[in-house]
């Protein structure tokens, strides 16, 4: 079995990468490791990514190897932590004006629009991590047949609620901004409110189901 990898992000943070590919059980161990490391006094924040964990420093560890050893030991002991999250159902209008890149996904996958909608709306997607922009959820579990490479030229701005595919991942934009992913539909939901605690509506362990509201051919 290959070993986890620890690397530095300058003097601001370190990055722990779990061995192997993306799957829910590994991600549940990442969540467990995050919960442990968040309690360490030199750590400001433990930030789960996809199959990895970033730790930002509150104070600089003078000897890095001590922290690395403690981290590896915690990983070895970390048990998958299934979080009992909420499941949010999100109505989506697929295709049309709100899904300007549907045709690109059709062209790349060779599937029809109806097939794409059926495959995309079938699973319950667990929220693996948050990142990119406030409230944005990285989701696991997209059907691999839908995988479409990132766009060669990123789109300058896609609106909040854009449902899009990037490589083997899918997600919903929480606010307008640039994106290299292909947008296949649109949903309306407020994912983030800085006045709430926590500010993000969905957290790791929660999940999303896309309900087909309409398909525009």
């Amino acid at each position: 079995m290959s070993l986890p990898r620890i690397s530095l992000l300058g003097t601001t943070a370190l990055l722990f990468e779990a061995p192997g590919g993306l799957d829910l059980v590994t991600q549940q161990r990442i969540w467990a490791l995050a919960r442990i490391a968040q309690r360490w006094p030199e750590i400001r924040e433990a930030v789960p990514g996809m199959n990895n964990l970033m730790l930002t420093f509150r104070t600089l560890p003078h000897v890095l190897s001590t922290l690395n050893t403690r981290l590896l030991q915690a990983w070895n002991e970390a048990q998958p932590m299934p979080l009992e999250g909420r499941c949010i159902e999100l109505p989506v209008v697929y295709g049309g004006e709100g899904g300007p890149h549907m045709q690109d996904v059709v062209n790349h996958t060779g599937l029809s629009i109806d097939d794409i909608v059926a495959l995309h709306s079938a699973p319950t997607y667990p929220v693996y991590a948050l990142g990119s922009h406030p409230g944005y959820c990285y989701l696991g579990g997209m059907d691999p047949r839908l995988a479409t490479p990132r766009r060669k030229v990123p789109v300058l701005s896609i609106p909040a609620g854009a449902v899009s595919i990037g490589g083997s991942q899918t997600g919903v934009s929480a606010s307008a901004g640039p994106s290299g992913w292909s947008t296949i539909g649109s949903a309306s939901m407020q994912f983030f409110d800085p006045h709430q605690t926590p500010p993000a509506i969905l957290l790791p362990g929660d999940s999303i189901r896309f309900r087909v509201e309409k398909v525009i051919q």
Binding site: L9, G10, T12, A13, E17, M50, T56, G131, Q169
Partner: peptide
């Protein structure tokens, strides 16, 4: 290289 999304900080 294909890399899974992960946390980054200013300066990277």
């Amino acid at each position: 290289m294909e890399i899974l999304s992960h946390g980054i900080v200013p300066g990277v």
